[in-house]
Amino acid sequence: MTFKLIINGKTLKGETTTEAVDAATAEKVFKQYANDNGLDGEWTYDDATKTFTITE
């Protein structure tokens, strides 16, 4: 399955995708991506669209 991450950061904005077997796996990938890029914010997830959002 394809999951999307929408980034609404103070300095970084955009989106990225990952292929994962489930939402929990995708969340780990996206949280590592956010950590690697210095993002810290509030996370939301929409199961209907398989989309995570981080807002700083």
Rank of each mutant, 00 (worst) to 15 (best):
K28S: 11
F30H: 01
T16L: 14
G38A: 09
I6M: 06
K13Q: 11
M1S: 11
V21P: 14
D47W: 09
T44F: 11
G9M: 15
N37M: 15
E42T: 10
A26Y: 00
A34V: 12
T16R: 15
E56M: 14
I7K: 02
T18I: 15
T51I: 06
D22G: 04
E27K: 09
A26T: 00
T25L: 08
D47L: 07
K4W: 13
E19Q: 13
T49Q: 08
K31N: 04
G38V: 04
N35V: 15
I7C: 05
D36S: 09
T51G: 02
K10E: 07
D47K: 09
I54F: 07
F3C: 01
G41N: 01
A48D: 13
A34D: 00
T25M: 11
T16Q: 13
V29S: 06
G38M: 09
T51H: 03
N35I: 15
L12H: 13
D47P: 14
L5G: 01
D22N: 09
V21K: 09
A26M: 01
D36K: 11
E15A: 10
T11I: 14
A23C: 07
T16M: 15
E19G: 05
E56A: 07
F3E: 00
E15R: 05
E27D: 05
A26D: 00
Y33E: 02
M1I: 14
A48W: 08
T16S: 07
D22I: 03
Y33V: 04
E27W: 15
A24R: 10
E15W: 12
E19H: 09
K13E: 05
A20W: 02
Y33F: 12
L39G: 02
I54H: 02
L5K: 00
D47T: 08
E42S: 10
T51R: 03
T11N: 12
G9T: 15
D46C: 07
T18Q: 05
A24C: 09
Q32A: 13
D40I: 15
L39N: 03
T25F: 08
N37I: 14
K31C: 05
A48Q: 11
E19C: 11
K10R: 14
T16D: 03
Y45H: 02
T55Q: 06
K13R: 13
T11E: 08
K50V: 04
F30I: 01
F3R: 00
L5T: 01
T55S: 08
A34G: 03
K50R: 15
D40A: 14
K13L: 08
L5Y: 01
D36M: 10
V29T: 13
G38H: 12
W43Y: 03
T25N: 08
D47N: 09
D47S: 14
A24F: 15
A23M: 11
N8D: 09
V29N: 06
Q32D: 07
A20N: 03
T17D: 05
K31L: 08
T25V: 07
A34S: 05
L12D: 07
Y45R: 02
D36H: 07
I7T: 04
G41Q: 02
M1E: 11
F3L: 01
E19A: 08
G9K: 08
A48G: 09
T49I: 08
T49Y: 05
K50I: 03
Y33G: 01
I7G: 02
F3M: 02
I6N: 05
Y45F: 05
D36C: 07
F30S: 00
E42D: 13
G14L: 14
D46T: 05
F52Y: 05
N35K: 15
W43R: 01
V21W: 13
N35S: 13
I54G: 01
K10M: 13
T2D: 06
Y45A: 01
F3I: 02
E27P: 00
N37H: 15
N8L: 14
T51A: 05
A24E: 10
A24D: 10
N37V: 13
W43T: 02
T49P: 02
K13W: 10
E15M: 12
G9V: 13
I7V: 09
G38N: 12
K4G: 04
A48I: 15
T18R: 05
F30K: 00
T51C: 05
K31G: 04
N37F: 09
G9R: 05
D22T: 05
T16F: 13
T17G: 04
T16W: 15
N8I: 15
K13Y: 13
K28L: 09
I7P: 01
A23I: 11
A48R: 12
E42G: 06
T2C: 07
I7N: 02
I54T: 02
A34L: 05
E42L: 13
G9H: 11
T44S: 12
T16N: 05
M1R: 08
T55W: 10
G41I: 02
M1P: 14
K50P: 01
G14C: 11
I54R: 01
T17K: 09
